[in-house]
Write a protein that binds this DNA or RNA. Structure first.
Length: 499
RNA sequence: GGUUCCGUGGCCGAGUGGCUAGGCUGAGCUCUGCAAAAGCUCCUACAGCGGUUCGAAUCCGCUCGGAACCUCCA
C-alpha cells in the first residue's frame, strides 16, 4: 500500500469552493501546473509565497509516492498591462527603461528568479516552459478557437468571443462572476474598441513594427495573449485535462477564467480538475504589491535594507514563517511576526541537526502506550499534510516531536521499539527537509568566520604567553583538521588560510 | 456598486458542532560557576447582538470592522 493510499489527500478546489478528495486521472501520475513569474522585474516576497506554496504541494505529492510532472512557466512575452488593447508590453517597457534588448531583460530576471528559488529552497519544476518557446503551439490554439467560432479577428488581433462562448458553455464559473455585471461595470470604456464586448480578451495581439518582440502569424505580426500561454503549455505537457492547476489568488480572474475558456473553446473540455489558489501576503493588512510600494525584494530581506524591515532575516526563517500559515489564508507580514518565526525555526533547526546524529538509547521494556503516542505523531504528519497541505498543523506536530528529540539529546533513554525510533527519526527529517523544504541554516558569512577565528587566535596567544603549549597546539591542530591553517608570524602576529 | 473572503489570547497563526493546536513574547521556577540551550508552570481567546441546538469559535441572521477581485499584479 502506497503512502498516498494510506493517507489520501484532499484539496480545497477553487472551482467548487469545497474540500474534495484528490483523485488523479492516472495514478500514480499527477499533472501539476502553476503560474510562474513574468520576468520583467525582480520577484518580491509576495510572489515568493505562492511559489513556496506550490513547491510544498509538489514536494509532498512526490513524497507520498505520486509521480508528479510539475510544470511552471516563465512568462517572457505577451504580458500586457491590460487586455483592452491600449496596454503596454511589460517586457518591452522594462527593456526600454533599462536600455536592454527584451531577451536581455528576460534572461536577467529569469536568472535572478532561479537564484531566489535556490536560496529559498524552491525546487526546480519538471518542465519550465517559456511563452516565447511555444509561439507555434499558441498560434495553433488560436486557430482552433477561431475554427470553432469562439473568436474573431479585428485589425490583425484575435479576440475571444465570450458572448458566443456562453451560448454553449459557462464563463465565470471559477471566479463566481456574473457576465452581465461585468458588462454593466465597464460599458463606458467600450467606444472605439476593437472588441465586440468589453469582456472579450485578446488571444493574439497585433503589434506595430517598432515593437521588438513580435512573431509572424496568419493574422499578421503580433504577440500571443497573456492568458494563452498557460493554456497552450499546460495542454502540451500535461494533456487536455490534467489534475492540479495553481496560482495566486489574484490570477483567478481574469487569467484562470480565460484559460478555462480558451481550452474549452479549443478542445471542448475543461482543462483542470482541481484549481488551487494561494492567498496574498499582506503588509499591515494590505496586499503586498509593487504598485502599493509596500513590497520588498528577497535581497533586501537578507540585508534588512528596506524601510519596512527592522533587521535582516534569513531565507529559511522566512520560508518557515510562510509555512506557519495555511496557503489559502492571507498572511500578514510584520517584523514582530518574522522575529518570532526566526526563533521558532531555530528551535526546529536545532532539533533537526540533533536527531541526525542521535542513536537509539533503549530504556527498559517497551512501553506500548508511549510507542502509540509517538506513532501518533508520525501519522499526524501525514494526515495533516494530506488535509489540504496543512503546513501549519504539520509544523505544530514537528514542534511536539522536537520536545522528544530534546529529551533524547539530553541523554534520556526511551522505552520504545528501535523500529519506532527509526521511523520517528526518518519522518522528522524527511518532513523537515523533503516535504517542507526547511534545511539547517548554515550560511554563515565570512565576517562571522573571521570573527570566530580571531577569538581563537587571541586565546592561542594567551596560551602561548602562559606557556600552555598543549592548549595552543590543540587549537592549531583542531583548526587544521577543519581546513583552517594558522601561521605564526615573526612578531607574534598570526594569519590563517582556509582551504 | 457587484462578487468572494476574513475578524481567534500581548503578537503571529491552526482549528468547523462537544475532546478548547503550535510558535513567539512576558512572569516565575528547575538545571547551571556565569551565560545559552533544555524542561516545568502561569497569563486561556474566539468582533458585537440575536437565533438553532442538550451543547457553537465552529451552523443561521443582523450589526460593526477589514481585505481581495471586478484594470496589471503571485
Amino acid at each position: 500500500m502506497t503512502l498516498y493510499e494510506q493517507h489520501p489527500v484532499s484539496i480545497t478546489n477553487s472551482l467548487s469552493g469545497k474540500k474534495e478528495p484528490f483523485v488523479p486521472l492516472n495514478p500514480p501520475f499527477v499533472g501539476l501546473y502553476s503560474c510562474g513569474p513574468t520576468v520583467y522585474n525582480e520577484v518580491h516576497l509576495g510572489n515568493l509565497r505562492t511559489f513556496t506554496a506550490f513547491d510544498v504541494v509538489y514536494r509532498y505529492l512526490t513524497h507520498i509516492g505520486y509521480r508528479v510532472r510539475y510544470v511552471r512557466n516563465i512568462t517572457d512575452a505577451g504580458h500586457l498591462t491590460n487586455d483592452a488593447g491600449e496596454g503596454v508590453d511589460r517586457i518591452e517597457e522594462s527593456a526600454k527603461l533599462e536600455q536592454l534588448e527584451p531577451m536581455e531583460v528576460v534572461q536577467k530576471y529569469t536568472t535572478s528568479f532561479h537564484e531566489v528559488c535556490r536560496i529559498f529552497n524552491i525546487l526546480p519544476p519538471s518542465i519550465e516552459p517559456t511563452a516565447t518557446g511555444h509561439i507555434v503551439e499558441q498560434i495553433e490554439m488560436v486557430k482552433k478557437i477561431l475554427d470553432n467560432g469562439y473568436a474573431y479577428e479585428t485589425n490583425g488581433s484575435v479576440y475571444f468571443d465570450v458572448r458566443r462562448f456562453m451560448e454553449k458553455y459557462k464563463y465565470g464559473e471559477l471566479s463566481g462572476r456574473n457576465i452581465d455585471d461585468l458588462l454593466e461595470g465597464t460599458r463606458e470604456l467600450d467606444r472605439q474598441d476593437e472588441k465586440r464586448n468589453s469582456v472579450d480578451f485578446a488571444i493574439w495581439k497585433a503589434v506595430s513594427p517598432n515593437h521588438i518582440q513580435r512573431w509572424p502569424s496568419p493574422w499578421g505580426e503580433g504577440i500571443p495573449g497573456w492568458h494563452l500561454e498557460c493554456s497552450a503549455m499546460g495542454t502540451k505537457y500535461l494533456g487536455k485535462t490534467f489534475d492540479i492547476h495553481g496560482g495566486g489568488m489574484d490570477l483567478k480572474f481574469p487569467h484562470h477564467e480565460c484559460e478555462i475558456a480558451q481550452n474549452v473553446g479549443a478542445y471542448g473540455v475543461t482543462p483542470v480538475r482541481y484549481w488551487m489558489h494561494a492567498n496574498m501576503l499582506t503588509v499591515n493588512g494590505e496586499k503586498m504589491s509593487k504598485s502599493k510600494g509596500n513590497s520588498f525584494l528577497p535581497k533586501e530581506l537578507f540585508t534588512g535594507a528596506h524601510p519596512l524591515l527592522e533587521k535582516a532575516y534569513s531565507p529559511m526563517a522566512v520560508r518557515f514563517f510562510m509555512l506557519q500559515s495555511h496557503y489559502s489564508s492571507t498572511l500578514d507580514f510584520s517584523n514582530e511576526a518574522l522575529s518570532a518565526a526566526e526563533k521558532g525555526f531555530k528551535k526546529l533547526s536545532n532539533a533537526l541537526g540533533a536527531i541526525k546524529k542521535l542513536d537509539f538509547i533503549p530504556l527498559g521494556a517497551e512501553d506500548h502506550e508511549l510507542t502509540k503516542e509517538l506513532e501518533k505523531l508520525i501519522t499526524a504528519c501525514y494526515t495533516n499534510m494530506s488535509d489540504d497541505f496543512n503546513t501549519a498543523k504539520t509544523l505544530a506536530v514537528l514542534f511536539e516531536m522536537t520536545s522528544w528529540i530534546n529529551d533524547w539529546k539530553a541523554g534520556k533513554g526511551t522505552a520504545i521499539a528501535s523500529e519506532t525510533f527509526e521511523r520517528f527519526k526518518q519522518t522528522f527529517i524527511s518532513f523537515m527537509e523533503d516535504v517542507l523544504g526547511l534545511r539547517e541554516e548554515e550560511e554563515h558569512n565570512q565576517e562571522m568566520i573571521d570573527g570566530i577565528i580571531q577569538v581563537l587566535i587571541e586565546l592561542r596567544k594567551q596560551a602561548r604567553t602562559n606557556k600552555n603549549y598543549a592548549l595552543s597546539d590543540k587549537i592549531r591542530d583542531d583548526l587544521k583538521a577543519l581546513g583552517i591553517q594558522l601561521m605564526d608570524g615573526k612578531a607574534g602576529d598570526m594569519s590563517y588560510t582556509i582551504d
